[in-house]
């Protein structure tokens, strides 16, 4: 019995300590886009080193989750990488923090080096189904796309316009599996965030422009989407501190170094 009392006492003390701790440290939660999540985590780490009194938590879930959780106040800051924010997000405060290019990628063995945006549209809509029709070998095209609801997919389709994805398209559920599928299939074409290009896949020129940071900043490469940070009300206090940090030259340099395109330079 004595043991139990001691235990209960200890538990109570721990609880009070925890509560006290929670009051002293402010906490800011970010949630949303899985494409921006790794960058946000890195930036949050840097921010917390400079501001130990504020605790920043980063969660994924996707752009739709970012918008929903900002509206429901489950998160203080939502992350969304969409060309056009949906209707329900119109009243949120949106700050553009970075930009992300969408690269059209093929297998390195594919001789095709460039496509026009019309050709990309035709390939993904299924009206062009052989590489021969766009200047390649006589092989069928395997279209690889993302699942419905993906921010990358909706941005891709909105920028190019008029794509109703062919029913033949393979669907992969992340940037990483798109890369694997295209790397393994000589006939495949897919699209992914340009920060994730490696030597197993080959990005093609779109309308003559390479998918590189300088071409995107010069406005010649068209397949670009913004990364937004969303808040329910005009930012204040700790939330404002976090947002200000994201736009600071230090954070923007980190974004640049990791393969995204900074908004300020």
């Amino acid at each position: 019995m004595r043991f139990r009392k001691t235990f209960a006492g200890a538990a109570l003390c721990a609880l009070i300590a925890l509560l006290g701790c929670g009051q002293k440290r402010q906490s800011v939660t970010l949630a949303g886009s899985t494409a921006f999540q790794p960058f946000a985590e890195k930036l949050a780490g840097q921010f917390m080193q400079a501001n130990p009194e504020i605790n920043v938590t980063v969660q994924g879930g996707g752009s739709a989750v970012g918008i929903q959780s900002t509206l429901s106040q489950a998160a203080d800051i939502g992350m969304a990488d969409l060309v056009e924010l949906p209707e329900e997000a119109r009243n949120l405060v949106a700050i553009e923090v970075a930009r992300d290019g969408i690269a059209i990628v093929v297998n390195p063995n594919n001789p095709v080096a460039g496509l026009t945006s019309q050709q990309v549209r035709d390939i993904f809509s299924g009206t062009v189904s052989n590489w021969k029709q766009v200047g390649g070998d006589d092989r069928p095209i395997t279209v690889v796309s993302r699942e419905a609801g993906s921010g990358t997919r909706s941005s891709f389709e909105q920028i190019l316009g008029n794509i109703s994805l062919t029913k033949e398209a393979l669907i992969q559920d992340s940037n990483g599996t798109i890369r694997e599928t295209v790397a393994n299939d000589a006939n495949a074409v897919g699209y992914l965030s340009h920060g994730l290009i490696n030597d197993k896949i080959k990005p093609v020129k779109v309308d003559g422009a390479d998918c590189t940071t300088p071409e995107i900043m010069a406005g010649r490469y068209k397949l670009v989407r913004p990364v937004y940070l969303l808040t329910l009300e005009p930012p204040a206090g700790a939330i404002k501190q976090v947002l200000d940090y994201m736009l600071s030259s230090e954070a923007q340099a980190t974004i640049d170094g990791c393969g995204l395109i900074p908004v300020k330079h």
Partner: peptide
Amino acid sequence: AVKIPGSPLDSVRTLTANIALEMGY
């Protein structure tokens, strides 16, 4: 791929895959 397969070499999406793929959004 969301389509009725014409041959065993066609790509397909099963009921379970449909839930798991789109659940997040």
